[in-house]
Nucleic acid binder design. Structure first.
Length: 605
DNA sequence: ATGAATGAAAC
DNA sequence: GTTTCATTCAT
C-alpha cells in the first residue's frame, strides 16, 4: 500500500491567481497567490486514516509570513454526517448546570417553589434543537431553530433573563389556557416574573449571563446594532441620499467592500450580494487570511468552569473537540475555513497554539490592514471513540506546520477534497496520507507553479527577532514583571528567550508579557486572553486579583471577566512560558497566554 | 407586521 | 431618557 499509494492522491493545482485584482481595498489586496491546490484523496479502501498536510519548511523559524488556509464548504466531501448527539449533550450539560435536568424541565420544580410544571417536557425549550443538519449546533438562541424570515444571517441578540423566562413558561401557560393570545401570555408571564423570588430570578440572570457569554464566544466581535429610531431614520436617510447623490456614481458592490465598516452584518451582506461563487471564495479566502487570529481556543467549552488549557493539558485533551465545532456551526455562512500559519513556529519542539479556522461570522476588524500572522499549535486529538468523521477535528502535528485530517475508516465515506490556498511561497506543499494498518506513508509533492516574493507589509511580523544570549536552565525565565503596573503595555511581543531546553539549539520565542496588577506575591499567575472582551486570569489565589488588565482600548465588560484557580499541572514541568504572537489585538479570536512566572520544562510532554 | 412583557444595549 | 430587539404565535 505504501509505495503505490502515492498514486492514490490526485493533486491538481489550479492556475494561481492573485486575489481580488479589481479590489482597491488594501486589505483584500494582499497579493496572495490563490493557488488552489486541490488534492483528492480517494477512499479506495478503508485504510487511509490520516492525511497530513504540511509545508516543507527547512527552517520555519525564518519563514515569517507564511500562512495556509484550508477551506471547504460543508456540503463538500468532508462534511459528511456528523453525530451531533454527543455534541449536543456536551453543550447541553454545561447549560444544564442551572436547570439541572433535561430540556424543558422547569427550574421552579427543581428548587421546589411550585409544582405546576412538574412533568412538562417540551421539545426544545432551551433552543436546543435536535437538528438534522450535519453540523453540530450549539443552542445559541432559541431562534436558531426557527428560520428567520427577514434576514437569516443576522445574529440575534442574546436573550435577556426575562425573554428566557418567558420562552420557558410560554408553552406551559399556553397549555393551561387553550386559545390564549400571546399577548396575554406575555402579561401572565410578566406577572409571574415579577412575583418570582429573587433566587429564582437570579437563576435566570445567570442563564442570561451564560447566554451572553456563549453568544460572544460564538459571535466574536458581535455588536448590537439596533436600527435607528423611526424619526432619526427618516432624517438620516434624507441626509445620506443627498450626500450620496452629490458625491458618488453607483458602483458595483464588489468595488465597494465595506472595509471601513466594523459591522459583520455588512460584510456578510456584501459577500452575500456577490453573485459569483469564485468571487465569493476569493474574498472569503482573503478574509480568512486576515482573520487567522481567530481562536477556537476561546470556544473550547466556554461554559465549563475548568477547561483544558492547551498549555497545561497533556497532548490529548479531547474535550476541546466538540465545542470548537459548535462555534463554527453558528456561523451564518456555510463556509468553514481552517487556517494556520507557520510564523511563530520556531523549532520542532515548541509548543504552538491551536489555530482553528473561522467562519465568516468571525471576521472582525478587517479594517485593520495587517498581514495575517501566526497562531498555532495544537494540541488536541480526535476522540478515538468517534466513528463518524468530524470535519472539524484536525490536528497539527506537534511543532510542525502540519495539519492532520482524519478520515473515517468507513468504506462508503467520500473522498476528502482539500482546497489549499497557498501563499506566495517558494515552498512546496506536501500532502501525506498514512494508512493506518501498516502505518505506511504515501506522499505527493506539489511544487508551487510560480514563485513570487511575498510582499510582507511593514508590521509586527517583520520585526527581527533578536536572539538573545543563550541561557540555560532557570535563567531562561523571562524577567518577572513589576507588580505595581496596570496594563499590558505592549501586547504585541517581546522577544524573550525560548525556555525550551529541548530545542536544539534553544531559539527565540515570541512572548507577550503582561504587567499584572495585584500580583500575588510573585506566584504563578497568568492571563489567558481569549477575546478582548473575555479575559481570564488564572491565579493561585483567586481573591487576590482586583482587576484584569486591559491591553487595548476595548472596553472590558466586567461580566466577562473571570478569575479562575490556577489549574494543577499534571506534571510540573508542563508549565511552560509561551504566548502567541498576535498581529492584531483588536481582533477577536486572538488569544494570548501570559505567564508572569516561567518555569522550567518543556511543553507537551 | 403587530402586540405584550422585561431588560440590555445603543443613541 | 428613548428606541430597538431579543421570545412566542395568533391575528
Amino acid at each position: 500500500m505504501s509505495s503505490n499509494a502515492v498514486n492514490n492522491i490526485n493533486t491538481t493545482a489550479t492556475t494561481p491567481t492573485t486575489i481580488s485584482q479589481n479590489n482597491q481595498n488594501d486589505l483584500y489586496n494582499q497579493k496572495y497567490i490563490n493557488q488552489q491546490v486541490q488534492s483528492t484523496i480517494p477512499k479506495t479502501t478503508n485504510l487511509i486514516d490520516d492525511i497530513k498536510i504540511s509545508t516543507v519548511l527547512p527552517n520555519s523559524l525564518d519563514n515569517i509570513g507564511e500562512s495556509y488556509t484550508f477551506y471547504q464548504k460543508p456540503n463538500d466531501s468532508m462534511a459528511t454526517t456528523f453525530n451531533i448527539s454527543n455534541n449536543e449533550n456536551l453543550a447541553t450539560n454545561n447549560l444544564q448546570n442551572i436547570t439541572s435536568t433535561g430540556k424543558g424541565k422547569d427550574v421552579e420544580n427543581d428548587i421546589g417553589l411550585n409544582n405546576e410544571n412538574s412533568n412538562i417536557t417540551t421539545s426544545s425549550t432551551d433552543g436546543i434543537n435536535p437538528t438534522q443538519t450535519s453540523y453540530p449546533e450549539i443552542p445559541l438562541t432559541a431562534n436558531t431553530k426557527k428560520k428567520r424570515s427577514r434576514n437569516p444571517s443576522k445574529i440575534p441578540r442574546p436573550q435577556n433573563c426575562f425573554i428566557i423566562y418567558r420562552r420557558e413558561k410560554h408553552q406551559l401557560i399556553s397549555a393551561k389556557n387553550p386559545g390564549i393570545a400571546n399577548n396575554d401570555i406575555s402579561k401572565i408571564i410578566a406577572k409571574m416574573w415579577r412575583e418570582e423570588p429573587p433566587e429564582v430570578k437570579e437563576i435566570y440572570h445567570q442563564r442570561a449571563k451564560e447566554e451572553a457569554k456563549r453568544h460572544m464566544l460564538a459571535n466574536p466581535g458581535y455588536k448590537y446594532t439596533p436600527r435607528a429610531s423611526k424619526n432619526r431614520r427618516k432624517k438620516k436617510l434624507n441626509e445620506e441620499n443627498k450626500k450620496f447623490e452629490e458625491n458618488h456614481p453607483l458602483k458595483h458592490e464588489f468595488d465597494n467592500p465595506p472595509h471601513q465598516d466594523k459591522n459583520h452584518e455588512n460584510i456578510r451582506q456584501w459577500i452575500d450580494n456577490i453573485s459569483s461563487p469564485s468571487q465569493e471564495q476569493s474574498i472569503i479566502n482573503t478574509l480568512a487570511q486576515g482573520t487567522q487570529n481567530m481562536n477556537s481556543y476561546a470556544m473550547i467549552n466556554p461554559l465549563q468552569t475548568t477547561f483544558d488549557d492547551p498549555l497545561y493539558s497533556s497532548s490529548n485533551s479531547g474535550s476541546l473537540a466538540y465545542s470548537a465545532c459548535s462555534s463554527a456551526s453558528t456561523s451564518s455562512t456555510n463556509l468553514s475555513v481552517y487556517s494556520w500559519s507557520s510564523n511563530s513556529l520556531s523549532s520542532s519542539n515548541i509548543s504552538s497554539n491551536l489555530s482553528r479556522g473561522s467562519s465568516i461570522s468571525s471576521i472582525n476588524e478587517y479594517g485593520n490592514i495587517q498581514q495575517p500572522t501566526r497562531i498555532y499549535e495544537y494540541e488536541f486529538q480526535k476522540p478515538v471513540t468517534t466513528q463518524i468523521y468530524n470535519p472539524y477535528d484536525y490536528k497539527l502535528t506537534q511543532g510542525m506546520s502540519q495539519m492532520h485530517i482524519q478520515q473515517p475508516s468507513v468504506q462508503s465515506s467520500p473522498p476528502i477534497i482539500l482546497n489549499v490556498q497557498q501563499p506566495n511561497t517558494t515552498l512546496p506543499l506536501q500532502i501525506q496520507a498514512t494508512t493506518q494498518p501498516i502505518q505506511n506513508t504515501i506522499q505527493a509533492q506539489i511544487q508551487p507553479p510560480i514563485q513570487i516574493q511575498q510582499p510582507i507589509q511593514a508590521q509586527m511580523t517583520t520585526q527581527n527577532i533578536n536572539i538573545q544570549q543563550p541561557q540555560i536552565g532557570t535563567q531562561m525565565s523571562p524577567p518577572m514583571q513589576p507588580t505595581n503596573t496596570q496594563n499590558v503595555a505592549n501586547p504585541m511581543m517581546n522577544n524573550l528567550q525560548n525556555p525550551n531546553t529541548q530545542s536544539s539549539p534553544p531559539g527565540t520565542i515570541t512572548y507577550a508579557t503582561a504587567n499584572i496588577s495585584n500580583n500575588i506575591g510573585g506566584k504563578s499567575q497568568f492571563i489567558a486572553v481569549t477575546n478582548p472582551q473575555i479575559q481570564t486570569v488564572y491565579a493561585t489565589q483567586t481573591n487576590s486579583i482586583g482587576a484584569i488588565p486591559a491591553y487595548t482600548n476595548d472596553i472590558i465588560n466586567p461580566q466577562f471577566q473571570e478569575i479562575k484557580q490556577m489549574p494543577q499541572a499534571q506534571y510540573q514541568q508542563q508549565y511552560y512560558n509561551i504566548s502567541t504572537q498576535i498581529p492584531n489585538m483588536n481582533n477577536q479570536g486572538n488569544f494570548q497566554n501570559i505567564y508572569s512566572e516561567n518555569r522550567d520544562g518543556r511543553p507537551n510532554v
